[in-house]
Design a protein around this nucleic acid. Structure first.
Lengths: 348, 348
DNA sequence: AATATTGACGCAAACGTTTGCATAAATGGA
DNA sequence: TCCATTTATGCAAACGTTTGCGTCAATATT
């Protein structure tokens, strides 16, 4: 491929020096003479020398490469997380290589193979929805390659994790509904095979219990997935109830938006009749009318934290830090979909 | 790093064979005996052998690595494009490594250095907004590394390009407005230092000329950028005109949405009073009410096309394909923001 | 039976860097 | 003047694979 790339040997010949001296000069090694260093660097830029990091990596047994496995790059949450990882990696001199699992177990296994073969020094992963066991990730541990999960993490093997406190966030979201006067609070739940959605449901229930509101199973909807369309199904179910809920906490923003839009068509007033809270703070939540109260998922910060943690583990070779869990603080962002007071005021 | 990784030598010792035989066996070389191949493969999986691709890459002078430089990963357009690239790369056995320029020229230069040092076999790039010259990309050509730009491309150096026909798309969008009866058609333009936005403005003008509608410079707004906030500025300007436009073609969806939302607040009816067309088909364009008519930018397809083209150039070592330009067909997606007929019907 | 052919494998160099150790020249101190 | 120290550089091996060429035995050909 390289159209006759300049190597360290070429520099050595031109300057009548050995390759070792060149190599050391380029690294500012203390035992190399000032003038030699200058000469070498000058010639290097003149001839357009570029270190062949493949060779360097082989020799040093170091790649400065971080592997990332995500379900899909084009999901907003993940692209923001990756963006955070890239930033931290760049500043620390690491490169990133990205694989998509497309939420498929087989593809995720293939991804781990690829990363292992490419000698990544650490891995950041978010489990595919279809993944039920994490044996394929265990291979990283066998090779002493640090592993950090984010969002959808693996509990079966020892690994570091960066998560948000879904329970607490859901709890807070639900209590917020209570605080504005809701008593019949519904929930659109995510797949109960995934930890984060279990926590969100539990947080919701806990908030009700704390406020002595009985849990009404008719008000909890379990759609097939958390897509806009599935959200509409739930919204229709809610609308058909003899008595409407007066607040709904949705496990993500898509379903929250579908509820808002269907209810508006049915002339159900938001937030006066029903207040809505979503989860994730997707860009669309500021656009929808009324703007959606939601939990900010801090994707960028999660990515940053995951990368920082990973790099720390890569560079601290004493494996004392067996594993670590970072919990990112979430924010409840209050917007119009739960702002009853203001609207009442303006109605006066 | 590797916790005593199994190498080809280990396999060779165990089987009393030479490393060359092992290597060939693992590649199913025809001169290796059937039984030997079986034995080798069996032991390899037993011992958990994994090819060290760094060493392999060095020897073969091949990395199977594609470098990608994008302004930002977390912009929907780019994350979809990357997703398309990754898919094609994965199927062809290539890995991708991603750099963000953050729309900064300096960072983009640094990115090219990184990719060169890592011996990428090809590069896909989208220019940073701040980038005014592409000399740093010329270095790839010096090293015979194929280069494909997408969306924001570079005309100064010979390179392949994947673009949409912005002129044609803008022309079609504007003609669509004409076809539903608009005669005072406004435009929110992007930065005229960037080719794609020039083309969109030209397409708009051409459509007006073709339909014998005079170009009214009061109806063309040049905001600082194409953010939601800047869009609001333009929307206010339009609203202050003594005579409102009856249609607006916006250079992206964000500004289109800001216009819709401001006009709604001002009780300007969309599409009856003013019809709106955006550009990009961002997810939010289906959520906004009324849903936004827009041009689908085919980001995923652009990414696929760019990766396919690049891989073809990598593998066709006869550099006959000096450069190639692919123009992706766009779609005009008609939604409520320009559907006057239907609304009129339903009003009857 | 002697030679040609085929099949199966090993030798050793190469890819471009890095690095422990040795060496040579220059300087200092006695 | 001689030895010890410092300074600056070179030698050569190593990282793990791949690959052109050579070798050797077994089989086929005459």
């Amino acid at each position: 491929m390289a159209g006759s790339r300049v190597t360290i040997k070429d520099l050595a010949e031109k300057l009548n020096l050995s390759t070792s001296t060149i190599s050391r000069a380029l690294h500012n090694h203390p035992t190399i003479g000032k003038k030699t260093i200058q000469d070498v660097r000058k010639l290097a830029t003149e001839m357009g020398y570029l270190r062949n990091s493949v060779a360097s990596n082989l020799r040093r047994n170091k790649t400065n490469l971080i592997g990332i496995i995500v379900p899909r790059i084009d999901i907003n949450f993940h692209s923001r997380a990756i963006s955070g990882m890239e930033e931290v990696a760049y500043k620390s001199g690491y490169n990133i290589t990205i694989c998509q699992s497309n939420d498929s177990y087989e593809r995720e296994v293939a991804n781990t193979q690829t990363l292992l073969a490419n000698m990544v020094e650490g891995v950041i992963g978010c489990l595919a929805l279809k993944t039920k066991n994490c044996n394929h990730f265990a291979r990283f541990k066998e090779h002493d390659i640090p592993l950090v999960f984010y969002d959808r993490v693996c509990y079966e093997i020892e690994s570091s994790k960066v998560i948000i406190d879904d329970f607490e966030a859901a709890f807070r979201a639900t209590e917020h509904l209570v605080s504005i006067g809701c008593r019949r609070i519904g929930h659109i739940a995510g797949s109960q095979t995934t930890g984060i959605f279990v926590s969100r449901l539990e947080g919701y229930k806990a908030a009700l219990r704390k406020n002595k509101i009985p849990i009404n199973h008719n008000l909890i909807c379990f759609p097939e997935d958390l897509s806009y369309e599935s959200g509409l199904e739930c919204a229709r179910k809610f609308a058909r109830l003899t008595k409407l809920p007066d607040g709904i906490f949705c496990a993500n923003d898509y379903t929250a938006i579908s509820v808002i839009q269907l209810f508006k068509k049915l002339n159900i007033k938001i937030p006066q009749d029903v207040a809505i809270v979503g989860f994730s703070n997707y860009p669309v939540s500021t656009i929808i009318e009324p703007a959606l109260t939601t939990i900010d998922d801090r994707a960028f910060e999660m990515g940053q934290a995951a990368a920082k943690l990973l790099i720390r583990q890569i560079e601290d070779k004493n494996l004392n830090i067996a594993s670590e869990t970072i919990i990112i603080k979430t924010d409840l962002i209050i917007r119009e979909s739960t702002q009853r007071q203001m609207l009442i005021k303006s109605e006066i």
